[in-house]
Design a protein around this nucleic acid. Structure first.
Lengths: 370, 370
DNA sequence: GCACGCTTGGTAAGCGCTTACCACCCGGCA
DNA sequence: TGCCGGGTGGTAAGCGCTTACCAAGCGTGC
């Protein structure tokens, strides 16, 4: 247009057709390998394409083919809890678990030539639902992390596009993919109570509305109680799946002079990370003075001191499974309403009181590598 | 179609027009707030929209408006180094720094009603460039992390869509956004040599082709040498920006009986994490026996033992800046060719040998929160 | 009271693709 | 030699929107 302002001219299929001396239909056929065009035609088209650097426009293609080859993914980003100066801390927190899941989704999507369209919502955002709905129409289907839409809206939206929830609840019109919270938490509770003999245990929660959190909480509590130990929970023990949230809970507990239990099971690894940090800051030894465990087995859990005992979920596979489920709904018309549970395994490391070398329980888990 | 198979019927603008008893043009005008329609018209349209749950199709809108409201982001995922059984480790590594940047991009994008279309490439993937080019046509512009495209292809692609590189190099047709490697590394080197008096220092690198890595390496080396200390590098010191990569370097060094320097500056925090872990495993104390530093200041760095001394980059802001630069190119026709450098600051914590309470250098940094 | 101008709604073109449909060419058979 | 069928290329319709353009309705000022 003017001086150095780059033109950004994208050739269209018409340009290619003209350059190759064929019709646009032929170009399209060559590109999409339809109806076996003559070698000569094919060659001329390919040459023109290469010369012009032609790449078909995604929007036009999507409109015509009725397939965008895009999967929308919605994650919940940590709520910005304004009051105390902690805002920035939460804001900057990394969402390792969701990010890792997304990596799994993305890799699976690549195999089908799909891309991942990301949207994060802060739950108490005023118009988060508008954003999710808009995302829905930019994609062929949606993967929703951790209950970002209420059942009502979920039902309404699932009438328009296929939806898979991650760590949500399955409904007649949506499929859910999650890890085995029950099995994992049960193993963990038994290990802490029966193998280590802890008598007082607490659960430090994640987002209150998260189905994962609810299931872990309930299972852990029930199992601890059933094993004859005493279980603590309540509003003081409410975290937010983030390190800062876990640390905050400990700080308050300590400040209030509340007695600490012998073991704390955290809703996830990130929380455990913050908890361990806070306890250590106050001169308490983990696991010497108090045992702490996580959930997920995110990579950093393997580099912490002490090594974090946790329940491993097949994180990337969770994402890949969600994508495949969605893909089959989008492309093969597969029906919704499934609930896919992937197995979890207890990974005994150090923070529960096991020694790195000799775990008190014989059958070592499938070796948490290294 | 058949039994329970959800129909996924998306109403079109024609359906809305019919329901509201107006033309599609009126519907479009109401929705896009053009030309101030009569209150009555507006009301009827809004009602029909609400009733049908109409959401305009992204592809059609994009095609017509010539704007997709999508920004493509390409990250480089860790190379799967097949030989030793380490595959899974690398595969599962979380990419905290890129993920955090993307969060910044995404948040900035939301303010403009853009979404983020993600694509990860493994550099020695056979057709990664095909995927990047395809991504380009699904978006209005591209943000490329860490040199994922060679200059040739970059030049070619930048003729078609606006491109911003993150931690790359600016070219006449692309804008680059990065952190101040020079300033950060210089401060770090001086701190280690002048304040702590270390005499032998090494740099443990990231991806060899990464401009960030090259700049950090060169600056650190030059500064150490200039300060009169001795600098070690070389092929043994080649990591890959991941914890596993850093750990591997240490393992090899130790296995080969190589003498370790007094201080190791790592290409980034993730690497430092692996290095600290590996050293500790071998009974070496950080920083007692050897000092280790990172770069980036990712959140977990604040929960490690020892607390990691590092160079802080404004991570989310890096992403937000990249988006804004791209947005101005897409929508305001801003020219490319800029190079935006964001400031970095040295964050002295424990792993360099500073004590948590009394850093050897008086002017404490802007308090790394908490 | 009429012409003019401003406002508002409708019609239709077009964004860049895919593909149904048709016209054509060619070889093989009667 | 004439027909028919298989296979190829071209034309045009349409995917669901936005918007230029036009027609109509209304209020004003002379």
């Amino acid at each position: 247009m003017n001086d150095g302002g780059t033109a950004h001219t994208q050739p269209t299929i018409y340009d290619v057709a003209r350059a190759a001396g064929v019709s646009i239909a032929s170009v399209s056929r060559v590109l999409n390998e339809r109806r076996n065009p003559l070698p000569d035609t094919k060659a001329r088209v390919m040459e023109a394409v290469a010369e012009l650097g032609f790449i078909p426009d995604g929007a036009a293609r999507a409109l015509s083919a009725r397939l965008k080859e895009v999967v929308g993914v919605v994650i919940r980003r940590p709520t910005v809890t304004a009051p105390d100066g902690d805002i920035y801390a939460d804001e900057e927190e990394s969402l390792q678990f969701p990010d890792l899941i997304n990596r799994g989704v993305e890799v699976a999507a690549q195999h089908r030539d799909f891309n991942l369209l990301l949207c994060s919502v802060d739950v108490d955002d005023h118009d988060y639902s508008r954003r999710i709905f808009a995302l829905a129409r930019k994609s062929d289907g949606l993967i929703l992390h951790d209950q970002v839409l209420d059942p009502d809206q979920l039902a309404r939206l699932s009438g328009q596009v296929p939806i898979v929830t991650l760590a949500g609840v399955q409904t007649p019109t949506t499929t859910n993919v999650g890890g085995d919270n029950l099995g994992g938490m049960r193993q963990l509770a038994r290990h802490l109570v029966l193998d280590h003999g802890y008598r007082t245990l607490a659960y430090l929660g994640g987002h209150a509305s998260s189905p994962d959190n609810i299931a872990r909480h309930a299972t852990f509590g029930a199992e601890v109680t059933a094993s004859g130990a005493s279980f603590t929970d309540g509003p003081h023990w409410q975290g937010n799946y983030c390190a800062a949230g876990g640390a905050r809970v400990i700080e308050r507990l300590l400040a209030d002079g509340e007695p600490l239990p012998e073991a704390i099971a955290c809703a996830n690894d990130q929380t455990a990370l913050g908890v361990v940090h806070a306890l250590t800051q106050h001169g308490l030894d983990v696991p010497g003075d108090i045992a702490v465990t996580g959930f997920d087995d995110i990579p950093v859990a393997r580099h912490l001191r002490p090594l974090l005992t946790t329940v491993r979920q097949p994180i990337q596979q969770l994402g890949a499974t969600a994508f495949e489920a969605l893909y089959s709904m989008v492309c093969d018309g597969e029906k919704a309403g499934r609930n896919i549970i992937l197995p979890t395994t207890l990974v005994r490391r150090e923070s529960c009181g096991c020694s790195a070398d000799a775990a008190p329980v014989p059958p070592a888990p499938p070796a948490a590598k290294e």
